[in-house]
Design a protein around this nucleic acid. Structure first.
Lengths: 107, 107
DNA sequence: TTTTAAAGTGAATTAAATTTTACTTTTACA
DNA sequence: TGTAAAAGTAAAATTTAATTCACTTTAAAA
């Protein structure tokens, strides 16, 4: 059977997630959302980012869902590629805002 | 043979590492140094932190050395316990300073 | 200088993250 | 609608991080 040629398009427009407020108490879920937002904002497909960075699709999905049970090295790879980074915060410089357990966290 | 009783002291004074400049380009090595600095500043023994958080000593050593091949969840556990946190930085807000490969990094 | 608590390392085993493959769900758009 | 691209999920196999335990090194203090 003959394989049909790929449809000629300019690429499918994909739902772009909104970038979360970065000036919030840190959580891995929020980080995942920021990663998704940055990736979709750059019009990059999850699959492409994964194969470019030599990590699997399920792992990248895990990262974007905010599951902290991923290796720090994989997380950094993704962040660096998308132009995201960390800044260290010590709570004896600026005390944390009294948030009562975000609905955002895993534990 | 009879075990000798523990020496009565007020605890050994341990070398306190200096806190690195937190307003620098992020690297896992710098993060490790900050963790060590925070821990020693709080006069906590590596062994005690490890057992309190139910992680092994070799793993905590790996984290403090800045090896990124650790799970993000273990890293977050340690940071939260010591009062350290992350802030997310997107390079389209503030562009990265042109640093030529820090002598600090692993790759 | 000797002692010893604390930090750090190495090897074998265990536990868990990652990969692969295939499948299901969602969602733009023709 | 129907269809196909992209995202998300599941299970088995693989890879790798974590643990355990013993040991070595370092550096305060007696």
């Amino acid at each position: 059977m003959k394989t049909s040629p790929p449809k000629q398009t300019l690429g499918r427009v994909v739902k772009s997630t909104e970038m979360p407020d970065l000036c919030q108490d840190f959580s891995s879920v929020q980080l995942g959302k920021a990663i998704t937002a940055k990736r979709t904002g750059m019009q990059l497909k999850l699959t492409d980012v994964a194969s470019t960075l030599s990590i699997s699709k399920p792992t990248l999905v895990k990262i974007e869902k905010g599951d902290p049970r991923v290796t720090f090295s994989n997380l950094l790879k993704v962040m660096e590629y998308l132009g995201l980074s960390f800044q260290l915060i010590a709570d004896d410089i600026l005390p944390p805002s009294p948030s009562s357990g975000a609905d955002d966290d895993w534990f």
